[in-house]
Structure formats: structure tokens, C-alpha cells
């Protein structure tokens, strides 16, 4: 699936929920389903420090595609991390650079990308794009 198709699929999934509680319960589920990052990758070099929660992100080149694996110490952050990995993992570097992420706003989780949250997610998205730049050159 393309990045756009995956984003639309996520928006569809979140459309089913009537209230925020169900949304957050779903994020908790997603966090549990995110394949665990290998312990040897959970190192400071892969750490994105937010004041509030931490995110670990590792990328590897897989032909012309980029593979991502990630984790967070906070469950809600990890749920959103799972969504970001789902959208960008195993996509072409060029596509990662060219596609805008609109699903987070569309599913009503934009607040988690605000300045005050300092949860590492904004830096994580930037970092995913940097990896894409690095791997496309």
C-alpha cells in the first residue's frame, strides 16, 4: 500500500470510534502490537529525548526502501509511534520525503504534536525524514 492509502486506512479505523476514550484504548492496543525494538538498538544513539517521554527510532536501508523500528517509554506515545511506523515502514525513501502526514490531524491526535507536549514525536517525524534523505542519496 502507498503512504496515502495507509493514512486513509488509519483515518477509516479511527472513524469507528464514538469518543476519545475508545480512541485512546485503541492506541493502547496498537502500542502492545508494535513489534518490540531489539534491545541492542535501544541505545542513546537512537534515542529522541522529549521532556515528557522518550522515543527510540532505528532505520535501515532495504533496497530502495527504508525499514523503521521504534519504541517509546510512554504507552500513548508508543501507540502513535506504531501508527507512524505503519505509515512509513517499508516505503521508498522518495515517497517518505514527498508525502505529507495528514492522518494525525484527521484522527484528532494533533495535540500530541504540539510544542508543549515534548514527547519526542515531532522530532521522530523529522528524524524519519532525515533517514529518508540519507538513504536516498
Amino acid at each position: 500500500m502507498t503512504i496515502q492509502e495507509i493514512q486513509l486506512e488509519i483515518i477509516d479505523e479511527f472513524d469507528m470510534f464514538d469518543d476519545w476514550m475508545q480512541k485512546y484504548d485503541y492506541l493502547i492496543e496498537l502500542s502492545k502490537d508494535l513489534p518490540a525494538i531489539k534491545e541492542d538498538l535501544k541505545v542513546d544513539d537512537n534515542l529522541i529525548k522529549g521532556c515528557q517521554s522518550k522515543v527510540w527510532l532505528h532505520a535501515s536501508k532495504n533496497g530502495d526502501k527504508v525499514s523503521f523500528t521504534a519504541d517509546s517509554d510512554a504507552i500513548i506515545t508508543k501507540g502513535i509511534v506504531a501508527l507512524l511506523v505503519r505509515v512509513f515502514d517499508d516505503q521508498k525513501a522518495q515517497d517518505i520525503l514527498e508525502n505529507e502526514l495528514h492522518f494525525i490531524d484527521a484522527i484528532g491526535l494533533k495535540e500530541h504534536l504540539s510544542m508543549t507536549r515534548s514527547n519526542g514525536l515531532v522530532s521522530m517525524i523529522k528524524q524519519m525524514k532525515f533517514y529518508a534523505i540519507a538513504f536516498s542519496s
Binding site: 485512546y24 517509554d73 510512554a74 514527547n119
Partner: peptide, 12 residues
């Protein structure tokens, strides 16, 4: 429970 998770739900 991570403070971020708790704080997020309390805010809600």
C-alpha cells in the same frame, strides 16, 4: 504508568 500517559488522560 508513565506520567505522560496519565497526564494525557487527566487532560481529557
Amino acid at each position: 504508568i508513565h506520567p505522560y500517559d496519565a497526564g494525557t488522560i487527566l487532560d481529557k
